[in-house]
């Protein structure tokens, strides 16, 4: 999941990614918009207060904040008001005939370049896809400017509307280690040493090492190695399962104060009968790190497989 790599600036970085699943609620207007695209109809909304029509249909008028009035079918033709080209093709703003705001969408240039001011017409995907992409994009058109006023549509039956859409975010990151984390994880990965930094004022040893003591707010001046043994300051037995979890329950979430440190380390306790975890463990229970085989280490906190109680 995480690994040390070499960044473009030659400084090591930590690569991570977040894979977040979502179920997004579309709201009434957008669900009608998406449903109607399946019938080849582009739906906007009309604010009676402002006397303006926007596409796609919206639940509220962005101009006055009021409830939108009628849901209306608009003409599939319009004019390009802006255009830009990407590696994947052109996108632009389209002002549909009889509409008072631009729509951002794909512009089909397969038949030649399209310019601002050109007339275009909607093209639809062969099958509805459940998003705005049922409207595939806009292609050049010889249509005349339509003077047909947007027409109110019939109420769409509630059961025909998809009220939620499945969505996901995949977010890759490269985190710079900086000097303190860099040194910490180099030492951890190369020889299993755990470093902190000492505050010259209060003498506390801060793990992980940091440039400043948060309490005295003075610069720490010295790396100090702490032991891979310590005591439980707090712990909890995890039974819950959740998306993104890196371990299989049950397991013990532990806050450990390592011998020689003044701050807590978050890790797991294992090597015990989990069914008896609440009896075996206590606040203050001494624990020691169980390291992974050297071949499996990669310079992260995961190099410690878990902590186990030290037998009395």
């Amino acid at each position: 999941m995480t690994r040390i790599t070499t960044g473009i600036d030659q400084a090591p970085a930590l690569e991570t990614s977040l894979e977040m699943p979502y179920t997004l609620t579309t709201g009434k207007a957008v669900s009608v918009f998406i449903e109607q695209l399946g019938h080849g109809v582009i739906v906007g909304s009309h604010c009676d207060n402002c006397d303006r029509t926007v596409v796609p249909a919206q639940d509220y008028c962005a101009r006055c904040g009021g409830d939108q009035g009628a849901t209306v079918a608009v003409e599939p033709t319009g004019v390009v008001t802006a255009i830009t080209r990407t590696a994947d093709g052109a996108v632009g703003l389209i002002r549909l005939d009889g509409v008072d705001a631009d729509l951002l969408h794909v512009i089909d240039e397969s038949a030649g370049e399209v310019a601002v001011g050109d007339r275009v017409e909607a093209t639809f995907a062969p099958e509805p896809v459940g998003t705005i992409l049922t409207l595939a994009g806009f292609a050049p058109s010889t249509s005349a400017v339509s003077t047909t006023a947007p027409k109110e549509i019939d109420e769409v039956a509630d059961e025909d509307l998809a009220k939620q859409i499945i969505y996901s975010l995949s977010l890759p990151y490269r985190h710079a280690y900086g000097p303190n984390y860099g040194r910490l994880f180099d030492e951890l990965g190369s020889r299993g040493g755990i470093l902190g930094s000492r505050c010259p004022h209060c003498q506390n040893v801060l793990v992980p090492p940091r440039a400043y003591c948060e309490i005295c707010y003075v610069k720490t001046e010295q790396f100090v190695e702490v032991k891979d043994t310590g005591r439980l300051q707090a712990f909890s037995v995890i039974h819950m399962e959740f998306i993104g979890q890196t371990r299989k329950p049950p397991y013990v979430y532990a806050e450990i104060v390592l011998d020689g440190a003044s701050t807590r380390l978050i890790h797991n306790v294992a090597g015990i009968d989990m069914a008896r975890a609440t009896e075996v463990l206590d606040i203050g229970t001494p624990v020691r790190a169980v390291w992974k085989a050297e071949s499996e280490r990669n310079g992260t906190l995961d190099d410690i497989d878990y902590f186990e109680p030290i037998p009395e």
Partner: peptide, 16 residues
């Protein structure tokens, strides 16, 4: 870098 892989939202921390 430090603790996210062991985190259980805020619940693990609060329980501990």
């Amino acid at each position: 870098f430090w603790g996210r892989e062991f985190a259980v939202g805020i619940m693990g921390f609060s329980a501990a």
